[in-house]
Design a protein around this nucleic acid. Structure first.
Length: 271
DNA sequence: AATGGCGGCAACCGCATGTTC
DNA sequence: TGAACATGCGGTTGCCGCCAT
């Protein structure tokens, strides 16, 4: 049986968001939260589908987004986490407060992957030729074409075949990561452990419902440029005041613990 | 100055998963 | 119990600006 599309396609705007749309969305969420993304655009008077609104909010408009260049620490953490977790961008993002999975994904594909590839070539003198964007896009198109003819979920499978061309890209799933990988995540996580404990809750939707906005400094919202104006320390305080907790963060903590423990055990067996 | 190529990033697409009824 | 619906996630695409020629 078919699923209803997430939104009716007719008459809805697509593409880049205007500042007016941004303001509308921010203003609406400020007032009402976002209990229902599907209904939100209609209620907010936006000609967008709910999915688009959600994405815009999560990746750009949320007040706890940290924008700007990634620090060396952040990049290193991404690399290490990617070695252990693979392309689990949301899991990686959960360890980088203020960063979105989309942003991390972009950084990985545009900077880190290339850098690692270069380093690998410098060290090992090989690892395959770097794929150009053109080639990559051409392959993507081919993959997309293949997808048309292949039933079932193929987006990840085909793209996996395309993009997992480097050693790093083909990082094993968690269950089969090497002890080196585990050590990597262990050290990465230890290095940021305190930070993470503090911020695990931050990744969770800060204003997932209307009960939160009261905790938000109104002056923040009066500004058009809503990004980067609230520092994370403030967010932590607000969240802890609000007693925010989340199943997802707990899940993350749980799996992180499992990973760490597994890593420790592996290390022991190796020793 | 014109232009073509490339990199970076925001946004879209479609499937997976969770939730509700 | 299972269908319908909502949300999350990862891969991919398209646009725009920068830079080399």
């Amino acid at each position: 049986m078919g699923r209803a599309p997430c939104c009716e396609k007719e008459g809805l705007r697509r593409g880049a968001w205007s500042s007016e749309e941004d303001e509308r969305l921010v203003e609406y969420i400020r007032r009402h939260g976002h209990p229902n993304w599907r209904a939100l655009p209609k209620q907010a008077g936006l000609l967008r589908c709910g999915k688009s609104c959600r994405l815009r909010w999560i990746n750009y408009l949320r007040p706890d987004i940290k924008r700007g260049n990634f620090t060396a620490d952040e990049e290193e953490l991404i690399v290490r986490l990617h070695q252990s977790l693979g392309n689990k961008w949301s899991a990686i993002a959960a360890q980088l407060p203020g960063r979105t999975d989309n942003e991390i994904k972009n950084v990985w594909h545009t900077h880190l992957k290339k850098r690692l590839d270069d380093e690998r070539k410098a060290v090992g003198g090989g690892g395959g030729r770097q794929q150009t964007r053109k080639q990559s896009k051409a392959k993507s198109a081919t993959a997309a074409a293949e997808r048309e003819t292949t039933p079932g979920r193929s987006s990840s499978a085909t793209s996996g075949g395309v993009t997992c061309s480097t050693v790093t890209e083909s990082a094993a799933p968690v269950s089969s990561s090497s002890s080196a990988d585990q050590a990597a995540i262990t050290s990465a996580c230890h290095g940021h452990h305190h930070h993470q404990q503090q911020h695990l809750a931050v990744k969770e939707e800060s204003f997932s419902s209307a009960e939160q906005p009261a905790a938000i400094d109104e002056s923040f919202w009066s500004s058009t440029d809503v990004t980067g104006m609230m520092n994370l320390g403030d967010m932590d305080e607000e969240l802890s005041l609000a007693g925010s907790s989340s199943a997802r963060s707990e899940d993350m903590e749980f799996w992180l613990k499992m990973l760490l423990e597994a890593g420790d055990m592996r290390d022991l067996t190796v020793l």
